[in-house]
Nucleic acid binder design. Structure first.
Lengths: 177, 177
DNA sequence: AACACTGTACTGGTCAGACGGTTTTTGGCC
DNA sequence: GGCCAAAAACCGTCTGACCAGTACAGTGTT
């Protein structure tokens, strides 16, 4: 059902996110939809929650797989948006819907981003400014993809990520030179 | 009237952007509002257009004032989002509204961002990857502010901007070392 | 008998846009 | 400068569409 809701946002936009439409795409009656999510707000919050949970798990996994001791999370953060692994199944639909609809409540997203930021700045073993750079670059690419605002090519993205990771590796142990 | 519309988005959110409300805030009747903008879509597109035009002019001015020959536009781009000069009078209300409402059409924004990107990469006299970095950092900060996703402190922003500008200045004439 | 739905019909509220009317401004003519 | 018609700017109400949420009687499954 959350998949269906995300798909509706992708195809019809946030304003097309109606209970009827979600039910239709999910292959469920409206009654059945409302049986699980008593209100539209609940549905949107569930979308948001799933988006954040998925992203968090993916970041964890990527950080793990990177095999680094320092900068693992920064690397994961960049990798997440550099490769087109987000935006596929549900992407930013949850966040976007929550932000646009009055029934939304972005505070879970704000808390999640604050947690990521904390982890980057305090626990990733790299220069805080470099950590912030990784975060902002990641978020920037995400925004650009979300709105399709002249997205850079995969090559450009990779060079950009390499540049930032180079910086981070070089800057370890010392503040910015 | 566009000011009023932007204010409504800021206070009531995108879903609160109704013709009645805009008219009320603008001190105009609904009829009067519709006299100028025949449809809501027109209103939203006008908001978007003004947002983009304002930003473009501000960037021009900032680039001019920077007194640089190379990296002037990159510097302006960073300065624009580092200092809180955006988001005050209308901010991203136009873009956000255009994106969220089905009556929106983001293509003017996409074109504008493409133009900025071109100017940064091709005409700013700096390494293209560094230029892209400036752009993505700028957009990232803008997104973070838009949604209030754990915005960095002014100090952090400044350090970040300094870091990027340092990189750009150091990298002039040579590719990334 | 509880659960997980379906399908239909309805309510109440909201909102974009249409429309007919009214005021204000403008420009031409004496 | 005074007058006047026509155009422009603006008003307020009405309507039709849409949509969240309700209600409820039925169906199949466990």
């Amino acid at each position: 059902m959350l998949d269906a809701a995300a798909e509706v946002v992708r195809t019809d936009g946030v304003s097309g996110l109606t209970l009827d439409r979600v039910a239709e795409v999910a292959g469920v009656s409206k009654g059945g939809l409302l049986y699980h999510y008593g209100t539209k707000r609940e549905l949107v919050l569930a979308m948001l929650d799933r988006t954040l949970t998925d992203a968090d798990e993916t970041l964890d996994r990527l950080a793990d797989e990177s095999g680094r001791t320092d900068g693992a999370f920064a690397h994961a953060y960049l990798e997440y948006v550099t490769s087109g692994m987000h935006g596929e199944d549900d992407g930013a639909a949850g966040i976007f819907a929550a932000a646009a609809l009055e029934e939304g409540d972005l505070s879970p997203a704000q808390a999640q981003f604050a947690r990521w930021q904390e982890r980057l700045l305090d626990d990733d073993g790299i220069d805080p400014t470099h950590a912030l750079l990784a975060r902002v670059v990641g978020d920037g690419l995400w925004l650009i993809d979300l709105f399709g605002l002249a997205p850079p090519s995969p090559d450009q993205r990779e060079q950009l990520a390499d540049l930032v990771m180079d910086l981070i590796e070089r800057g370890m142990g010392s503040s910015l030179t």
